[in-house]
């Protein structure tokens, strides 16, 4: 089959010799498609963090930004602050409390919704809408429902259960505020875990359960041997993400208590905001932001260890 001879000299490729460039056109196109994402990241993340690092070495009064180099003094000041350590501790309490609560409730919701055979769509809609309702509405409802004059939850707590006095604004109570904020936030964010879990649950083929039924497994055994192993990875990621998000929570605090009463609900993000925009010391604020960023970086490492993205990249 080597019959044909005489290869004609073909004058080929006119224009840009793509195949002779150090990269081919597909590589260029590929980079072009992700370039907007990279630019967004550069503008919104890389530049600010770099800038914050730089600014954290300066003393910068917010109202009249004159930059004065102070070296590590901002960091020393932050680390010497009692309220920094107290805020860090409160942040950890809030993070752990919220995440655990959300994990339990979210798992419960997902498992129940997955098995529900009647009214599933409407119940799911109610649950999901909690995730889509903006946090400001949750906060406003919290403020309204715990209001001493008009609040229904205030009345239920004081008149029905006697948990607190009739005159007492519980969101302004040292003992109650943090716990209530955990519950308030969890009303919205438990659904995050529920959606994560439910998505995974619906992806488990029913033949797995049928097979185990044939083997005589009961519901608990099916949950333990089929459902749970399948959920483990997803739950790990969800818990990790929720922990990170809850540790960084700022909105619900500022909307309801602004860190009060006193410092009872001042977590690290709240303290940072206060020092910067109320205290007016932009350099110190940025030093705190950098410290928080370091926590995040540690979390990111854990995240990448828990779930290796490189295995997802192929195919």
């Amino acid at each position: 089959m080597a019959g044909e001879t005489l290869e004609p000299e073909s004058g080929r490729t006119i224009g840009i010799p793509w195949n002779r460039l150090p990269f081919d056109s597909e590589t260029a196109q590929g980079f072009a498609t992700v370039l907007p994402v990279i630019l967004l990241y550069l503008v919104i993340a890389v530049a600010p963090v770099t800038f914050a690092l730089y600014a954290s070495f300066y003393s910068i009064p917010l109202m009249n930004p004159t930059w004065e180099f102070v070296g590590l003094q901002n960091y020393l000041e932050v680390l010497r602050l009692d309220r920094f350590w107290a805020s860090l501790w409160r942040g950890v309490v809030y993070m752990v409390g919220s995440t655990l609560f959300q994990l339990v409730v979210g798992l419960w919701m997902a498992l129940a919704l997955n098995r529900l055979d009647r009214g599933q769509k409407i119940v799911t809609a109610v649950v999901f809408s909690a995730y889509l309702v903006p946090i400001i509405v949750v906060s406003l409802l919290g403020l309204f429902m715990f209001d001493t004059f008009t609040g229904v939850l205030h009345v239920i707590g004081s008149d029905w259960f006697g948990l607190w006095g009739t005159e007492e604004f519980v969101l302004g109570n040292q003992d109650w505020a943090m716990g209530l904020l955990i519950l308030l936030g969890s009303w919205k964010y438990s659904v995050f875990i529920a959606i994560f879990t439910l998505a995974q649950l619906t992806a488990i083929p029913s033949r797995f359960y049928e097979a185990s039924k044939v083997c005589g497994a009961n519901k608990w055994e099916m949950f333990r041997d089929i459902t749970l192993p399948r959920l483990k990875g997803v739950l790990l990621v969800a818990v990790l993400l929720r922990s990170i998000f809850m540790f960084n929570k700022f909105d619900i605090f500022w909307q309801t208590t602004q860190g009060g009463p006193g410092y009872a609900t001042t977590t690290l993000p709240v303290l940072t905001y206060r020092e910067t925009f109320i205290g007016g010391s932009y350099g110190v604020g940025n030093a705190m932001a950098i410290i928080m960023f370091l926590f995040l970086a540690a979390a990111a490492l854990m995240y990448f260890r828990a779930f290796d993205p490189s295995e997802e990249v192929q195919t």
Binding site: A45, V49, F250
Partner: peptide
Amino acid sequence: FLLFGYMFSPIVLGLP
């Protein structure tokens, strides 16, 4: 790089 975006905290980034 993409997944790192989950670590973007509005308060940390908003300040700078």
